[in-house]
Design a binder for these strands. Structure first.
Lengths: 176, 176
DNA sequence: GTCAAATATATGCATCCGCATATATATGCG
DNA sequence: CGCATATATATGCGGATGCATATATTTGAC
């Protein structure tokens, strides 16, 4: 349940509406966390119910009213508590590996195709990350950290492309 | 919902009980997929209810009876359909990056500690993977693929250790 | 002029999942 | 003798989540 905390984190930087929050999530933490629109609103409602976020209705003309949310004192405390709490350290689920593990039920061409599809996906991810990972203007810690989360994705993507080459070579030498 | 398919995949290789299945999952696909005991039993019950797996009760003396499960014809067909279906290609969630992204709320020492903890975790993961990734005796496709899933984890772990070094250096040069 | 997209929020429904707990028996360790 | 562990299965509870859908208005494109 890191979405609660990711939202608290974003609200700690800047108060905003659910609508705007959804866009910010997609753009800023989208490379390591995703959330449905309804999930954003529900989580936000939960935070307000628990007193971790405050909601202020802003009446707008020519547009629907919006609820401006901000992190409260207890909200910031909870954010800091979470940051300092022990890391979960459980392996992430990899649907792609689940396929690969049983892929020998398919003919060799389709195994190759599975790997090629993955290569295209990873290449696209890599390109997307490199496009937004502009070297920080400032050496501020926050900037360095946020850039580091992008560099994480880039490093993993490059490693995976190498692994794909290697795996393809090993498969070509295998007996079906 | 890849657990259904992972279980079908295992049952396609060898019929077994829920109890044994849980152990096999932990040992063979545990590095990219985990499942609670109750979840294994529930998923198995679902597969049987959908006609994708068959259940045969084996009466045992000196031990509780067991339900031996095997993949049915429709079950194997579903497994193959899944293997050939398009890859989801959504980014995996990374709770660690969620922390790092907002870690500048903490004092520098605690940011360093977060990275050090992660380094220990990744090193431990790497060691565990290398311990079980014994080079295949045979060049059979299945063996090559299963070894490749371990190599995947090893490649990613090594890349992450490099990234951790890099990130630490960049942080030391940052202004708080 | 109409249809789509953007702005803005919310609920219903179903699913996946982890944790805790219940049940029953055999073996082994101290 | 007692307690933990292994074998074996199952349910209850609640949380996190995605998809679909509802509502209402304005702006822009064709």
């Amino acid at each position: 349940m890191s979405l609660r905390h990711a939202i608290l984190g974003i609200l700690s930087i800047q108060p905003m509406s659910g609508y705007e929050l959804k866009k910010v999530i997609d753009e800023s933490v989208g490379h390591f966390w995703t959330a449905d629109q309804s999930q954003v609103y529900r989580t936000l409602a939960g935070l307000v119910a628990d007193g971790l976020a405050a909601r202020r209705t802003v009446v707008q003309e020519e547009r629907p009213n919006l609820h401006l949310h901000s992190a409260t004192g207890p909200g910031l405390a909870e954010l800091d508590r979470w940051l300092a709490s022990p890391l979960p350290s459980q392996p992430t689920r990899e649907p792609f590996l689940a396929r690969l593990f049983f892929a020998d039920r398919m003919p060799p061409e389709e195994i190759t195709e599975l790997l090629d599809t993955r290569r295209r996906d990873v290449r696209a991810q890599l390109a997307a990350l490199e496009a937004i990972a502009v070297p920080a203007e400032s050496a501020e810690t926050g900037q360095v950290l946020r850039l580091a989360t992008l560099a994480y994705g880039i490093a993993h993507a490059k490693a995976e492309l190498d692994w794909l080459d290697d795996t393809r070579r090993r498969l070509e030498r295998s007996t079906p």
